[in-house]
Design a protein around this nucleic acid. Sequence first.
DNA 1: GTCTATAACGTGATAGAC
DNA 2: GTCTATCACGTTATAGAC
Lengths: 192, 192
Amino acid sequence: MTTAPRDTKREILDTAEAMLQERGFNAFSYQHIAERLGVKNAAVHYHFRSKADLGVAVIERYRRRFHRWAERLNSEGPHDPWGRLEAYFQIYFAFLHSGNRICPSGVLQAEFESIPEEMREASRVLLEDLLGWLTVLLADGRERGAFHFLGEPADQAMILGSTLQGGLQIARACGPERFEAAVEQLRRQLKA
Amino acid sequence: MTTAPRDTKREILDTAEAMLQERGFNAFSYQHIAERLGVKNAAVHYHFRSKADLGVAVIERYRRRFHRWAERLNSEGPHDPWGRLEAYFQIYFAFLHSGNRICPSGVLQAEFESIPEEMREASRVLLEDLLGWLTVLLADGRERGAFHFLGEPADQAMILGSTLQGGLQIARACGPERFEAAVEQLRRQLKA
DNA sequence: GTCTATAACGTGATAGAC
DNA sequence: GTCTATCACGTTATAGAC
């Protein structure tokens, strides 16, 4: 029985992703990552030439993971709109309970003007995917009589997306209960 | 006729506030402020010993300004709930049209784990004031039959606050129309 | 693939002249 | 109140040995 070989590249991505969600892109360095993994910062540069490259890789991986999550939901998950919406909420509750992490898309937008252009482009694409998924869910759920709301699905998706993203941020300053209350309020709105 | 004497301290606060909302706290330096004002970085340190002091001063000033805004709204502004809510929306539209600035409270929460503790405390207080004001407005507006929503006013305030905060951030990545659409959707919800 | 060593620069901050 | 000069340190990034 052999020990699994160490996958440094993957560990760097995991660490960078966690630090991005915990502290922001401008508040962690190659040193921080190297120290946490017990390697030297040159090793990190070997896997990701520049910090911008690392940032883009983190965003793209997150986006691919979201697509896999969505595909799995299609094949194995609940098919009713409410079950699917709750599954989406669950992503954010998991962040909340993993050390007050916030939405990666949100932190990148907050720092939008001070991150490399390549990362801005990558986070634009990620955001469109997230809002697009919500829009389709809302449109479909209303057609099937599960959700109730006025206006366009894309606009209601903005309310949901903004509330989840903003709510996680607000929870840092005034506690997780406020996020839970916000999500409960979203549920109430869609039931009415 | 004499020229107004230069108020460097105030100009530093203005510049720091703008840079906070545009780039985030971790993405501007004393050098940046000094260069923009045409002074040396030692001059900035003369007015604010540390960057944490400067950060706290920016937050506190913003909070005082919000209170003056609220008092003026009580004395001179519209007294009907809808007029008051639109006045609040206007604060965020002004940010949107001043170079994609985002809510100061939001950017501080996004960087919460990487800013000095004194700033965290100050931004907690600011957030409570903002959400508190919205909560009172919603409670009052519903009593008077102007707003319609289910659940507690504090929970609906989370939806409004999160959507405005998150919406400004999202607008950076996908355009100002999306923020306007989100606000319009908020209006629709409260009218129903 | 990881290391040591180092470059080139930006950072927050201070001392002391004017 | 602003300046010059400087400090100690952290940052991204690279060259070359192992």
